[in-house]
Amino acid sequence: MLMAILSLTVLGSLLGLGLGIAARKFKVEGDPLVAEIEALMPGSNCGQCGFAGCPRLAAAIASGSAPVTACPPGGKALALALARKLGISIDLAAVADQGPRIATVAEDICIGCCRCTKVCPTDAILGAAKQIHNVIREACTGCGNCIDRCPTEAMALQPLPVTLQHWIWPKPLDGAALAPARG
């Protein structure tokens, strides 16, 4: 009995120690640029870029095999941030930016089938079987995965509605833009 406890404890500790030392000794340094690019991304692994999740797209962007505009949910803001990070210039005309959008449910035609809840990468859709679903605004990244899944076309991407919590002062127009109007 004592021998069994002792031998397993020693065996476990030795193996654990060995693995711990090996983890230090054989550590593989990842590309720090990939980690930085990944930190900028939405991180919801929605797959709209065609890669298997955000880490793969980050690696592709870092190696130059994918354009910085490849992330649809990230849109213009992400493309700009990535271009600044990589020090390259991009043509933003290619990025159709409709502003931040989130998914919405048309309550009158939602049949409560739960299909959209299963494909949501951020668990932003709330709903049970045969109950009308709803979208948690703060959690939705606007990836659009749920749109095609809906059998009744009740899901749609809408511009982020302005609420009291979200409203901000509009930016003052700069002089250049105002000058022709004055003259």
Binding site: L8, L11, G12, L15, G16, G18, L19, A22, A23, F26
Partner: peptide, 13 residues
Amino acid sequence: LVIAATVQFVEMV
């Protein structure tokens, strides 16, 4: 225990 630790170790190497 031993198999799991061995596989982990080999994976690292």
